[in-house]
Amino acid sequence: MNKLKMKVDLNGLTLNNPITVASGTYGFGREYSEIIDLNQIGAISVKGLTLEPREGNEGRRMVETPMGMINSVGLQNPGIRFFIENEITFLRQFDTKIIANINGNTIDEYCKMAKILSDEDVDSIELNISCPNVKNGGLAFGTNPKIVREVVSKVRKACKKHLIVKLSPNVTDIKTIARITEEEGADCISLINTMAGMAIDIHNRKPFLKRVSGGLSGPAIKPIALKMVYDVHSVVSIPVLGMGGISNTTDAIEFILAGASAVAIGTANFSNPYAPLEIKKGIEDYMRHYGHVDFNTLIGDLRM
């Protein structure tokens, strides 16, 4: 059997394989390390970090909807300092890349975090301008093209590491936002974050989530995510890290054919912790079946 080449270069971040796990679904890898071999995963995007610790949103944080779930965690995390002091060493035991996902209330906070992490042992910084669950920052940055330009440009200057910008699907024109992101110096684009969504308890007539709406993830958003990855890939030349409801091999290969250089598994981990490993093996089987030796030949290989 031919040895497959699974390594993929995301414009300065080389992954052993194109399977990553999505921020917010994997903590800092500790819990899942008791179940699966993290060495088999290309990269781990850690729980969204903020400059200071956050306890996150109060009240019910999750409601399941048809083939999806809406979460309203609100960036609960121990803060960037704790991450640096306690989590990086743990993750470094594994042969996987560490992506530090950062979230700011202000552009200044994003820059500070990028600067701090530039001197730490992480492989990439993922600028999250698309979290729907916090009052300031997050989504507010990612939906306005002017602000996207400003935040990416400033963080690029503060960041000495590989820089991924994570985009929100809650926009009218994803292509414009993606182009700006590339122009301002991002090394890679990841998309999509969750979609704004809502569910109501008809018996007490209240929204299930205390903050009314949250971020919808899971297979329900997959076709939308796929279209956005396809659109973005068609207008930028930097690599795209595709995500949004990927649950099995077929989903992952769809994203790769649409132009994703790598994929992230998120919500699927909850119902199937083995999903990243199964999908990795599934892609290898697919490559063998269709005679691909190098994974890179599969990226964007959509026949029109």
Binding site: R61, M62, V73, F270
Partner: peptide, 27 residues
């Protein structure tokens, strides 16, 4: 009890508000 997703402590969608912690409480 609470609605859960991952069940192992990674996703933070199920919380119990407890005493102490940096904010006078902890999720």
């Amino acid at each position: 009890e609470e609605k859960m997703a991952c069940g192992i402590g990674a996703c933070l969608v199920c919380t119990c508000k407890t005493k102490n912690g940096d904010f006078g409480f902890k999720h």
